[in-house]
């Protein structure tokens, strides 16, 4: 039906589109109805498995929900007040912020260094690039398991290597996963290994889009390598840099699988991120109202970051 209408409108003339029968055209080929027809199937899927769960979280956050969802009492903002005053929530928010800043910071610096190195067209660099990219598509869960295995204090290879080069005396002098000061850092190591290749790939694409003439004029003016990196490369890939940072910040904040595989948030909650805490409260302890309130706060923050950065990007 919508198709026929479009034919009439577009076929009947050669100049300006004349909307007939009050049909509002959104573009030269689409009216509102065909937009809906195109969007609806995908929209239904998102409504069922994203929008509905989200609304359920919002709804539940205003209730005290009994175990197994039997019986609920409206409690207003009590769950939100509980969240903001809970020490665990504050601690886990802090862990999340540390995780995001450290992991994304290290990934950006390493990714940038790698991109600058590997953009050289020296012999063999293409192969090296391919191999460095190999963690790119590995499951976060597998990355967590691999690093848990390597950082183990009983049979981990990392401590053995550190001992061989003389940094530590015995293989159990660094308890990567069971020392509460190190557990979060260990998880960050796994994250860095997993996602630095992504950063590198983004930056490489950015660097390769810089026109050669910029380098040429810089070298005519006698710029050294460092100046070329700081004055030409970094300013010219700032767009890519910004996008990559936004993607990674949101992804790092949502990290779940790596933490779950390596520490499940332990020891003593020292590596617990918000995502893990919310999941535990929902799944294990059944405090649905409280957990939903935390989830809503968390999601609002993520969406706010997204929308603000999106606006900034559009203005560029």
């Amino acid at each position: 039906m919508a198709g026929k209408a479009a034919i009439k409108i577009n076929g009947a003339h050669t100049g300006i589109a004349k909307p007939r029968k009050k049909r509002r055209m959104l573009s030269s080929t689409f009216d509102r109805k065909s937009l809906m027809l195109f969007f609806l199937p995908a929209g239904l899927f998102m409504a069922a498995f994203l929008l509905f769960p989200l609304l359920k979280l919002v709804y539940d956050s205003f209730f005290d929900v009994g175990d197994n969802y039997d019986g609920r009492t409206f409690v207003g903002l009590k769950n939100y007040i509980k969240a903001f005053t809970s020490q665990q929530f504050q601690a886990d928010s802090w862990h999340t912020v540390v995780y995001v800043i450290v992991a994304v910071g290290v990934e950006t610096v390493l990714g940038l260094a790698l991109a600058v190195i590997l953009t050289n067209k020296y012999k063999g660099f293409k192969a090296i690039r391919t191999f460095i990219l190999s963690p790119l598509m590995i499951a976060p869960l597998v990355a967590g398991l691999v690093w848990k295995f390597m950082l183990s204090s009983q049979f981990g290879v990392v401590n053995v290597l550190l001992m061989k080069i003389g940094l530590i005396h015995s293989t159990d002098s660094i308890l990567w996963l069971s020392d509460s000061r190190l557990a979060l850092i260990s998880c960050i190591i796994a994250d860095v290994w997993l996602t630095t290749p992504f950063m590198m790939l983004m930056f490489l694409a950015g660097i390769q889009s810089i026109p050669d003439s910029l380098y040429e004029s810089a070298s005519v003016e006698g710029a050294n390598k460092w100046q070329i990196i700081t004055k030409i490369i970094i300013p010219n890939i700032s767009g890519v840099l910004f996008s990559a940072l936004v993607i990674r910040v949101i992804d790092a904040a949502r990290t779940f699988d790596i933490i779950w595989a390596m520490t499940q948030g332990g020891p003593q909650g020292s590596s617990e991120l918000l995502s893990v805490h919310i999941y535990k409260m929902l799944q294990r302890y059944g405090d649905v109202g409280y957990a939903s309130a935390m989830a809503v706060i968390f999601i609002i923050v993520l969406i706010a970051i997204t929308l603000i950065t999106q606006l900034r990007q559009k203005r560029r």
Partner: peptide, 21 residues
């Protein structure tokens, strides 16, 4: 914008409601 916002939702938060559904 709706799609963008839905894309940001952490799976660890909505997976339990999905499970009960």
């Amino acid at each position: 914008i709706l799609v963008l916002c839905l894309k940001m939702i952490p799976v660890s938060s909505i997976v339990v409601p999905i499970y009960s559904l």
